[in-house]
Design a binder for these strands. Structure first.
Lengths: 157, 157
DNA sequence: CTTAGTGCAAACCGTTTGCAAATGC
DNA sequence: GCATTTGCAAACGGTTTGCACTAAG
């Protein structure tokens, strides 16, 4: 039983007059096996382990195809990182990003989505996608910071 | 009568044990004269015209200082562009970004801000800043697209 | 057999860094 | 004088491109 995503990908290739190749199949398989957020390097190193002959270039080119057909979503960060996550049949969400440890917390607010709709309507703007990121310090890192501060005070006494 | 921003900048320098230089003064002046959104290249070329001896490096380094002391805000885009806008006494806002012409439309929603506050509270997340961008096609570009489509139909007849 | 895809190396682009000379304090 | 800043050139890092070769349809 084939995964639906593979059909979507193959149809996308056919529609665009592109060819199905072993590399593309492999890259899709590896991407489908991932969970959460992966970088192009992450993907590349998994792929490299399975078939060392595949080049970084092909990974990039295939990720572009995965984005085009709605299987992958690209997330960009202020520090230059780019991560990919599954987009097919995954409900839309946005992210809290910890500037301490890089943790990503997904959030979703129906109310915010509705307010966005009102805003774009007001400006006669046709939305294609959005990126809503809140940067800050996660609960874990706040604890760590407090512990470190307490230690520093103890030492200075 | 000095602009308040200059005092803020000079105090920031003093506090950090940094020096006031002719380059930094010039770069701040040029930035204060801008409106809306400028890129580092934009700034550099204006500065270059006033004093060709200033290097790009110094512009970058000074922009970093302007961010630190809350005079400038940095905006990043999916296409690699980075723009700067005034941050001091400018009410917070987010952006609609036209993928057609690159136009930026500022928006602000008190309700969205409040919902964000609720979300971060729920995750015990300490927010530092956020970036909320809606990408799409602005009203102008939609008109242009429709006109182009109509023309294409007329030709094909 | 024709067209698209591949891997490699080189190019790219905006940004950052190492350094010796210059400048502010 | 001492530390910081400067401009330059070189490095950087992630991504893209040109090209000769390979493989899919």
């Amino acid at each position: 039983m084939e995964r639906e995503e593979k059909q979507i990908f193959n149809e996308h290739l056919k529609r665009a007059g592109l060819k199905r190749t072993t590399q593309r199949d492999l890259i899709l398989d590896v991407f489908l096996d991932t969970e959460g957020h992966v970088s192009s390097e992450d993907l590349y190193s998994i792929i490299k382990a399975k078939d060392p002959s595949v080049g970084f270039t092909t990974v990039y080119r295939t990720l572009k195809l995965l984005k085009e057909c709605g299987l992958a979503r690209e997330l960009e960060f202020h520090d230059g990182r780019t991560l990919y996550e599954h987009d097919y049949k995954h409900t839309h969400h946005d992210h809290l990003i910890c500037t301490g440890c890089g943790a990503l917390i997904e959030f979703y607010s129906e109310q915010i989505e509705q307010l966005q709709d009102e805003i774009v309507r007001h400006y006669h703007f046709k939305p294609l996608h959005h990126s809503h990121r809140i940067f800050g310090i996660c609960a874990e890192c706040q604890k760590a910071q407090k512990a470190a501060a307490a230690k520093a005070r103890a030492v200075s006494k």
